[in-house]
């Protein structure tokens, strides 16, 4: 440690020494890297574009990506167990369609929401059961889910369905004023609540620790007497639930249901989780990382809209480069371990 150095001048400020000597546990490193990247991108943006440093830009980042945050939370559960869920984008679309369709038929928004959530959980449950009890590869089971949910959307509505329900659109448009003239939306509050609950579950409950244990070594987890079957199926239910909630937030954001909503959004969610430092092999990662991952993706988009001259496809290129960089960094981290 630094204090062991007898030659160090005593007045050099122990605070600085402590700061310099501070080595975060290696499992936090990927999240810290993502955070540093985010801060760096913001710094660059603030220097380059006037108005980028406005706090409202940060708040908008959350507003425009609240659904993706929720989606990434669900995806984090799945990826921590070493699985993957490709169905989430389709389930988001299905949720918007079901919400729009039922409200069009005069259902109260709350009942619509409950139905949407039930559908999401059921789809997740079915995929989870197939994965655990029939040993279907998560990739295949959720690919089936992807096609199934997307197909169901078209069956329910081939065209965009606007949502006219007064209380629903009222809730969507309501903004929460913050001191200093800034504002945010209820969707952001809901998303952050979900993040908090997810973080608590993952780190403070047996279910959460079992999620990590399964990702570390499933056979061992089983022999340790942990509830492997329930949790392994459960993460897909959680992902289905999060997809349904994200679908509702997306309905609030778009005020419409459409079968072509959220095409490829599962890939954004996976990208966010990976950029957030969660290992695709499972067992390592944090929900907070995934939130940071979403914000990184959002910041790239903000960059492009502030610049105005860049094609929006640059977003995809930047995401591609970042993703590759993070996966390579992760490989290096894993390889260093014995």
């Amino acid at each position: 440690m630094t204090t062991a150095d007898p030659l160090a001048p005593a007045v050099a400020g122990s605070a600085w020494d402590r700061l310099r000597g501070f080595a975060p546990p290696s499992r936090f490193l990927p999240v810290i890297t993502t955070f540093a990247l985010l801060v760096g991108m913001f710094g660059a943006g603030a220097v380059r574009y006037p108005g980028f440093s406005d706090p409202q830009v940060v708040l908008n980042l959350f507003i425009d990506n609240s659904f993706l945050i929720v989606l990434a939370v669900g995806m984090t559960f799945v990826i921590l167990t070493g699985g993957i869920d490709l169905s989430v984008g389709s389930v988001v679309a299905l949720s918007t369609v079901v919400a729009a369709r039922t409200m069009e038929a005069g259902w109260p928004p709350l009942v619509s929401c409950v139905l949407v959530i039930l559908i999401g959980c059921t789809l997740g449950l079915l995929m989870g059961l197939a994965i655990h009890y029939f040993d279907v590869q998560p990739f295949i089971a959720t690919l089936a889910g992807l096609f199934f949910a997307r197909g169901l959307c078209f069956l329910l509505a081939g065209r965009p369905l606007p949502i006219h329900n007064k209380s629903f659109s009222g809730f969507a448009e309501a903004s929460i004023s913050l001191p200093g003239g800034y504002y945010t939306t209820w969707a952001v509050v809901i998303a952050l609540l979900i993040v908090a609950v997810a973080a608590f579950v993952l780190h403070r409950t047996l279910v959460g620790r079992t999620v990590y244990a399964i990702g570390g070594n499933e056979t061992s987890a089983l022999l340790m007497g942990l509830p492997v079957a329930r949790v392994k199926v459960g993460v897909y239910v959680v992902s289905g639930l999060c997809s349904a909630l994200a679908g509702l937030l997306f309905s609030l954001y778009m005020l419409s249901g459409y079968s072509l909503h959220a095409v490829g959004m599962e890939l954004d969610a996976i990208a966010a989780v990976v950029i957030g430092g969660t290992l695709l092999t499972g067992g390592r990662g944090f929900v907070v990382g995934s939130v940071l991952g979403v914000l990184v993706l959002g910041t790239i988009q903000t960059f492009i809209s502030f610049d105005g001259t860049l094609s929006s496809w640059w977003t995809k290129i930047a995401i591609g480069v970042l993703l590759l960089a993070f996966v390579v960094v992760q490989r290096l981290v894993v390889r260093r371990q014995p």
């Binding site: 499992r27 079992t210 987890a221």
Partner: peptide
């Protein structure tokens, strides 16, 4: 048959 990515205490008491 333990899980390497959890702590010693968690491995003992989970």
């Amino acid at each position: 048959n333990l899980v390497p990515n959890l702590t010693v205490a968690e491995n003992m008491l989970l």
